[in-house]
Amino acid sequence: MKKIFLPFGKISKQTLIIMIVLQVIVTLLVWQTTSDGLIPKPGNVATAFGQLLTTKLFIDNMFVSLALTLKAMLYSIIITLVFAYLSVIPFFKSIAQLIVKCRYLTLTGLIFIFTLLTKDGSELKLSLLVFGIVPFFTTSFLSVIINIDKQEYELCKTLGYNNWQTLYEVIIVGKADQVFEILRQNFAISWLMITMVEGLSMSEGGIGTLLIKYNKYNDITNVVALQLVLFLIGLCFDWLLGLTRHWLFPHSKLKQEVAS
């Protein structure tokens, strides 16, 4: 019992599960007792959540959002990898660093420019998402490259590798598993942006459009239920990406086990 309050204390899996279940129950109880007329009670949210999952409107909108997010993530990771790999070449280093700094730009201020540059709503949403995601992906991947152990490069040198072979072995092959980790860590950002971007072009629908509609009519119960769905999808992707990483790159699992 003392261990759960001890810094760096190690607890069994069973204790962890019991602790999480208890924390969830306490949260629900606090929620149930403190929520008034405006904030929906957990029971109402659960009912709305169940109903939402069975409606065609929700399923259609969910697929629209998922498809757009996955497409944006795919484009973003390709752009990120190209610039991150090139960042070890002095000529491209400054470009990669500029992309990193672009994360301070707000998407709202760029909507008009992107509207002029794109031909339809779909393209506008995708380009805004990619523009928003790439700086975060690049920041994460450049940090991976910067923190590469010097010995990895030295081992390449002792094996007689030239600079291109070293780039391929240490960064492209050696850090391939990190691409999945970056996707996993930054999926939350993409998911956060999708709801905002979808509000710009509502004709195609999406989770963002649904959220705006429910908010407009003060349907807080459905808004919270929708948030719950977003949260669970996020967790699901987190788990799936972690699983894929360990399956494709078994050493990443070993590394994690050694670290823990």
Binding site: Q151, E154, L155, L159, G160, H251
Partner: peptide
């Protein structure tokens, strides 16, 4: 120059993402 000598570092560093066989194959291919 780097690569002329075989070097074994104190902590016996190997590519963590390669199996022993593949690490040895990379060296043999050189």
């Amino acid at each position: 120059k780097a690569g002329d000598m075989g070097v074994i570092f104190q902590n016996y560093y190997l590519f963590e993402w390669r199996t022993v066989y593949y690490s040895l194959l990379l060296a043999a291919k050189q």
